[in-house]
Simulated assay, not measured.
Amino acid sequence: MDTLVTQLERVQKAIAAIEEGAQEYQIGTRKLTKGDLATLYGREADLKAAIAAQNGGTITFAQMGML
Rank of each mutant, 00 (worst) to 15 (best):
I15K: 01
G42I: 06
V11E: 02
V5Y: 01
G42Y: 05
K34L: 15
Q54W: 00
G28W: 10
A52L: 11
Y41E: 12
T29E: 15
L67C: 03
Q12V: 02
E24H: 10
L67Q: 11
Q12Y: 01
L40P: 00
R43E: 14
L40W: 03
I51H: 04
E24G: 03
G57L: 06
Q7M: 15
T6Q: 14
G57P: 01
T29N: 04
L47K: 08
D2Q: 12
A62Q: 11
I18R: 05
D2I: 09
L47G: 04
Q7T: 06
Q63E: 11
K48L: 15
L47S: 02
D36F: 02
F61R: 06
I59Y: 07
N55T: 07
L4R: 12
T3D: 11
L32C: 05
I51N: 08
L32V: 13
I15H: 03
M66T: 11
Q54R: 11
D2P: 14
G42T: 12
A14Y: 05
E19Q: 15
I51Q: 00
I51A: 00
L67N: 09
T29S: 09
M64R: 06
G65N: 04
Y41A: 01
T6E: 14
K31Q: 09
L4E: 01
T3K: 13
L47V: 08
I51R: 01
R10A: 09
V5F: 01
L8K: 10
Q54V: 02
I51S: 07
A50Y: 02
Q63T: 05
T3G: 15
V11K: 02
L32R: 00
Q7G: 05
L37D: 03
G21H: 10
I15E: 10
D46L: 05
I51F: 00
G35L: 03
E19K: 15
A22L: 09
I59A: 10
T33V: 15
R10S: 03
Q23L: 11
A52T: 07
Y41Q: 04
A62T: 10
E44N: 08
G35W: 07
G57T: 13
R10C: 06
A49L: 06
D36S: 08
G28R: 02
M64E: 10
L32H: 11
G28A: 02
A17Y: 03
I59E: 06
A50K: 15
M66K: 13
G28F: 03
G56N: 10
Q63S: 10
A52H: 09
M1G: 10
G56Q: 13
F61W: 04
Q26P: 00
I15R: 02
A45F: 06
Q26A: 13
L37K: 02
G21R: 12
R10I: 01
Q63D: 07
L40R: 04
E44D: 13
T60S: 07
A38F: 08
T58G: 04
A49T: 14
Q12R: 15
A62E: 13
Y25D: 14
G57H: 10
L37I: 12
I59G: 03
E44F: 00
